[in-house]
Amino acid sequence: MTAIASAIASAVGGRRAALWAAVVFVLLCAASLSVGVAGLSDGAPLELLLVSRLPRTAAAILVGAGLAIAGLVMQILARNRFVDASIAGTEQSAALGILLATAVWPAASVAGKMAVAAAAALAGTALFLVLVRRLPPTEPFLMPLFGIVYGGVIAAGVTFVAWQMDLLQLLETWLNGDLSGILRGRYELLWGVGVMVVLVWWLADALTIASLGRDTGTGLGLDYERMMQVGLVIVSVLAALTVVVVGMVPFVGLIVPNIVSRLRGDNLRGALPWVAAGGAGLTLACDVLGRLLRYPYEVPLGTVLGVVGAAAFLWLVRGGRARG
């Protein structure tokens, strides 16, 4: 697989690669718009497109792009390539936030729950970042291992609270991401992802400099601490938006930035569009796959990505070790 990746890297120049990526992306969108239980030829196709298929496709694109960008920022914050919002406990903390908001404040609007989720995600991620400072930097794989345990502990807490509050039936919708419930009127919060992506694009050079390390960044006039705080807010908001609207989606933020780094380098000004498009494409592809696997039934997006992502993660870890 490493050979395939390097073959792709050498075969694609900038423009041709962008062209091919655009073609694949359009095909994925077309597939997402046409695959489903109801056929586009019967009934009211325009209605079906506008109410269900277009929102679902847009949601997949936004969730994927947002999580990939969140993963990239998370990796800069943690100074480790093998973490993302699903591994560092960010998404689990967001789920805990929604649960608490639902339990304590049942009448809250979606935006209100989203705010609580973002605050919980911020606290959970900040605690993760404080705890991982104790890990030796010479052992990069300790951090994802610790993160999996940390996320697991928070998820267990979520389950316990849900059980106590008799909310277990609701829990699945947050813990396992699923796009089948996306309809017009139920995903619009996700456009907030677009705002975050623009913000990250604006900060691309500063983020690249932050990834060079605290000392080099400070020497270049970057306010490193401020950058870390802004990064933390971006990651938390992106994770909270995703968990509130579709539920937890694993691995996108881990896989996509690592593959893009290998193919397009670490200068974020150039790499960011690829990270966003790659995350969108991967999520879209996995959602379409989930709709086709046991047609006419669906496999949730979180489950498909869990399998696809775990395989890709193992490949990345192997590649990382071979290089190191």
Binding site: R81, T208, S211, T216, D266, N267
Partner: peptide, 10 residues
């Protein structure tokens, strides 16, 4: 300074 940055593919 000697700094261990994350960005190796610049």
């Amino acid at each position: 300074r000697q700094d261990t940055g994350l960005a190796a593919r610049l």
